[in-house]
Amino acid sequence: MLKSLLARWQQGYRTIPFPSEKVNLPDRFRGRPEIDPSKCPDGCRECVKACPTDAILPTENHFQIDLGRCLFCTDCQEACPSGAITHSSDYRLAARKRNDLLVGEEVLRLAGALEEKRKKLFGKSLKLRQVSAGGCNGCEADVNVLQTIVFDLGRFGIQFVASPRHADGLLVTGPVTGNMSSALHKAYEAIPSPKLVIAVGACAIAGGPYMGQAEVKNGVDGELPVDLYIPGCPPHPLTILDGLLRLLGRLEKG
């Protein structure tokens, strides 16, 4: 007993002061990718060709990056002959609409809050049922981490629950395999309305590296109505937390 108390004292206080203070991410952290078209050699399409998920689309005088497809990998950067592509350290990536994730000349429009009715219902207490539908356990792991003392999701009134009947919404990871489709729909139907759906990670948004495979459905879109998209492969825990808090209208100033 005394040893437990001593260990508790030694471990100290470990919850990060998010969102009140700025968080330190590693210097090599790959947040939102940015292309500086002024550096691009004429007609160069190397990044477009290199992107494993075809997330980079050339436009008239710029490029558009689909953050929903982006794996936040280094393939485009490596392929770029002129160093035009950088990853910013900005971890904030979540959006309400699928099209909002297409960025280029347009800046990323970060997720806004739920409409009044659902915000009033869920704003201070949100219970989520998580369903992994072909996820690699990367997104699942970094969702799970929100429940540790570091992020302490409970202090925001957000909690993961076992039964969909106790939930206000679904948090889906994975490209939605054919084999999980039926279970995913059953879980959704079991949640009382009004409800919400959150797609976490490149797979859940657009299929990720499994996009186009006959065995998967290319993500949650087309299967269920999605209220929040959180890009990443996997998204950093802060990206997920930031998205959840924006959805509940608790980060509108940041």
Binding site: A50, P52, D75, G135, C136, G138, G208, P209, C233, P234
Partner: peptide, 16 residues
């Protein structure tokens, strides 16, 4: 192909 590496990374995400 260009997806292969990323399938390997996500074959089991905790064993990337």
């Amino acid at each position: 192909d260009k997806k292969t590496l990323h399938m390997m990374e996500t074959l089991a995400g905790d064993t990337t």
